[in-house]
Amino acid sequence: MDNSHQAYGQLMAWKRDHLMTLFIWLAALMVAGAFLWLLGDLLVHGATHLSWSFLVDAPENAGRAGGIGSIIVSTLLILTVAMLAAVPLGLATAVLLTEFISATSRFGRLIGMSLDVLAGVPSIVFGLFGNVFFSVYLGLGFSILSGGLTLACMALPIFINTAEAGLRAVPDEWRAGAAALGLSRGAALLHILIPAAAPALTAALLLGVGRAMAETAALIFTSGYVDRMPSSLMDSGRALSVHIYDLSMNVAGGDANAYASALILIVLLMIINGIAQSLSEKLLQRRIITA
């Protein structure tokens, strides 16, 4: 090859390498910038309105004033309903998929595929479904129960997926050991496998809670807007995310409280996701120690 040609090629490669480095750094700066901008706004606008009374007081004047006491109660109730419905159903499904049928069997594949698809359904579609099925067809109306059950359907795939992974991470030696002692599968699950997978199952629960808590669109037409303190599960109750939406879109002058609510929502989600993550990491470490 001609010498000057080669030098030119090297120069181009050098240039390309540097352009690439420049692009990557610029992009990373933009992402970090957007994140910090958003976080900064949340902190600045949100933190100034935070106080203990904001957390416990009832909303006044459509939420412009007062606190979010009743909103937090409604949110917790909706989440409780969602998890009470999703956890037994999800745990049973995960146990069936890991312990009793092979993932490649027709039944296993059918369930797995259906859950995969369910995970991809847009949240507004869950809202439509929850409205017609729970609120209208089952006659639950706009209620905490309708909203919670709708969120249970939404959170089910992520719960099952995480729980399944946790159960699969339990060493097979324990399964063989339990079987060799003549324990029934049920006893092995109850006494050994489920306790051993407990951190992952907790992580699954928390991820499900996180998913449900972040949801807005599925709740507008199921649990509704009412911001009073709910007196039963059949009452409409306004979730925190719906509160943020309503304050910012429909209430002039509600931005400050919307930001404060958003900050609380995010802090709660960060705590939940953080615990979930450290639990799964802990499980991973223990696997390494016992392996």
Binding site: S248, A262, L269, N273
Partner: peptide
Amino acid sequence: GIPSVVFGLWGLTV
């Protein structure tokens, strides 16, 4: 992990 309604709020106000 940030919920969509928070992105919406920030988008709307900023």
